[in-house]
């Protein structure tokens, strides 16, 4: 029987589940597309990670992160619910010694995290535009009919990259189309896009920040060797891509869950059996005041288990009394 920690990162594009043992060894990891259905994705992730494990395990703690962290936490019974920035920071600190800067590019957002003396000292998230994040690259790859896995390799073949305006996703796309109609070859356009995205990232997020090495590049986009190379060219030094770069958020959750378990007894984990439960989500607009909050209700097997979205707390707070009434 091995003691394990479960980490779940529910992002906009992918949902990642990681199972880590007490010696920080990754026993299983799942990277699955969210596809707008976070509940299904979490269930699928749990099911797949269960298949990967052969030994008998005992889950000692669970952590969730990502934009769907509250939903996932409610489903599995999480001990720690953390924001993406802290989760990514903790993960990089444990896997790369002395890391000073983290670039993280995910599906919908990109962030930069600076560390000093082993703790996060500063961070920034993209505010202006989604240009340069995973979903934009996905879209461009699909438009050019290149599998996203080969997108980065194509960029490496470029000898004469074109200059593309990367400030905004819409303009970047029309600029790319313009260059393609002029007759530039695909490799040069892709390399130009990678350069533009890196330029945009460093200008938008890295502005005024002291970017010291070692630099770690993680998140789904880190799989793209073209972007990695563009970063290295722009910075003038090597950028490291850790082995589990695409699931670093989930790994951070495992580490946070482990820390939590060392301080507290027991876990709220509801067990892997929840993959068989049926979850329904209902929403309604509360019309009791002019705020018009959109309240979300989560039903597990027909029973109301959680509510959120209201500003005043009237709905989310009286959930326990409802349960008592049902019982």
């Amino acid at each position: 029987m091995r003691n394990c920690y479960l980490g779940i990162d529910v992002g906009s594009v992918s949902t990642n589940v990681v199972l880590m043992d007490e010696n920080k060894e990754i026993l299983g990891k799942v990277y699955t597309k969210t596809q707008g259905k976070p509940i299904d994705a979490v269930k699928r992730g749990l099911k797949e990670v269960q298949y990967q494990i052969t030994d008998e395990i005992k889950v000692k703690g669970v952590g969730t992160t990502g934009s769907g962290r509250h939903l996932a936490a409610m489903m599995v019974g999480a001990d720690v619910i953390k924001n993406e920035i802290t989760a990514h920071g903790i993960a990089a600190l444990n896997f790369v010694k002395g890391v000073r800067t983290i670039f993280e590019i995910g599906g919908q957002d990109s962030k930069i995290i600076l560390l000093k003396n082993g703790i996060i000292s500063d961070f920034a998230m993209n505010t202006v535009c989604a240009a340069g994040t995973g979903s934009f690259l996905d879209r461009q790859a699909a438009r050019l009919d290149i599998p996203i896995q080969e997108f980065g390799n194509k960029a490496l073949l470029s000898e004469n990259p074109v200059r593309i305006a990367g400030r905004c996703a819409v303009f970047a796309e029309s600029d790319m189309i313009h260059k393609q109609q002029l007759g530039h070859n695909q490799e040069d356009i892709i390399k130009g896009l990678c350069d533009a995205l890196v330029r945009n990232f460093l200008n938008n997020l890295g502005k005024g920040k002291d970017l010291a090495g070692p630099v770690v590049f993680q998140g789904g986009v880190a799989a793209n060797v073209g972007i990695k190379k563009s970063f290295e060219e722009a910075l003038g030094f090597e950028v490291l891509v850790p082995p589990h770069h695409e699931v670093m958020g989930a790994i951070g959750c495992c580490l946070l869950a482990q820390e939590h378990a060392s301080k507290n007894n027991g876990t709220d984990f509801k067990g892997f059996d929840i993959v068989h439960s049926g979850y329904q989500v209902k929403g309604f607009e509360c019309l009791d005041c002019s705020n018009g909050c959109e309240v979300i209700e989560i039903m597990k097997d027909g029973q109301l288990t959680a509510r959120w979205g209201d500003k005043c707390g009237k709905w989310s707070n009286n959930i326990t009394t409802d349960q008592e009434k049902l019982a």
Binding site: S67, K82, N83, E84, I85, T86, D109, N117, G118, I119, I120, S121, D122, F123, M125, T127
Partner: peptide, 29 residues
Amino acid sequence: LIVDELTGDAGYSTRLEAFVDLLKRRREM
């Protein structure tokens, strides 16, 4: 934090949460 009529609550909370985490860790150190 910069606010206007397009500000989203979720992104805003994430930044605040991460900032508070950062401050707490610093204090511990």
